[in-house]
């Protein structure tokens, strides 16, 4: 591993200024994602870069999440707030809300999932193309919340895998936004693969 010109864990992109490939390989290393924003911007000035495909793809994926709002209850209203003008999730590249699971890669489960809804949730999750990510928004999706009741799923991880849990009842739009940013980091680090 040590002989390779780049870190094979996939988190470093090696960039070369001028000249043919292989020349000055140790100079101008740029780390992705986002260890230093300025250096990423430098990318535009370069002529070429080398990296692993995984790193580049993860970097792109994290910056362009297409959410599928599986909104059932109160949290869905806060999700709407996050999408609408005041909070504006478009600033972080996740504004392309798709209601078809086949066009989305991030499922935001916003609201209580009851036993009657559980097969629907599972089916829709299975219809999403891979890689797919899931955010459990709010107390109900996370753990059933304060509905410890005969008809409420006690956390959606009973049914589908979850990448991010957002606390709150309901979480504020900022809270949900933060979770999307955290998920983005996680994807770009290459931790979420499925």
């Amino acid at each position: 591993m040590a002989n390779l010109p780049y870190d094979s864990s996939g988190s470093i992109i090696q960039r070369k200024r001028g000249g043919p490939p292989g020349e000055g390989a140790e100079k101008g290393l740029i780390t992705l994602p986002g260890e230093s924003e300025r250096e990423i911007e430098d990318l535009a000035g370069g002529t070429y870069l080398t990296t692993t495909v995984d790193t580049m793809v993860n970097w792109a994926r994290g910056n362009s999440l297409w959410p599928l709002p599986f909104g059932t209850a109160c949290c869905a209203i806060e999700f709407m707030s996050m999408v609408s003008s005041h909070y504006d999730i478009a600033r972080f590249g996740a504004e392309v809300v798709r209601f078809s699971p086949r066009q989305a890669d991030l499922m935001i489960v916003a609201g209580t999932i009851v036993d009657k809804m559980a097969p629907v949730l599972k089916k829709i999750y299975e219809q999403m193309p891979e890689p797919r990510y899931v955010i459990a928004m709010g107390a109900c999706a996370t753990s059933g919340g304060f509905y410890r009741a005969y008809h409420v799923v006690q956390g959606i991880d009973e049914i589908i895998p979850v990448d991010m849990w957002v606390p709150g009842c309901p979480p504020t739009p900022d809270g949900l936004m933060y979770s999307i940013l955290k998920l983005k980091e996680k994807i770009q680090r290459g931790e979420v693969r499925r």
């Binding site: 059932t72 209850a73 609201g111 209580t112 009851v114 009657k116 809804m117 629907v120 109900c140 304060f146 509905y147 009741a149 005969y150 008809h151 409420v152």
Partner: peptide, 11 residues
């Protein structure tokens, strides 16, 4: 209906 029956009355 009932896809959001959260048992308010029982709770």
């Amino acid at each position: 209906i009932g896809y959001l029956h959260r048992c308010f009355e029982k709770m």
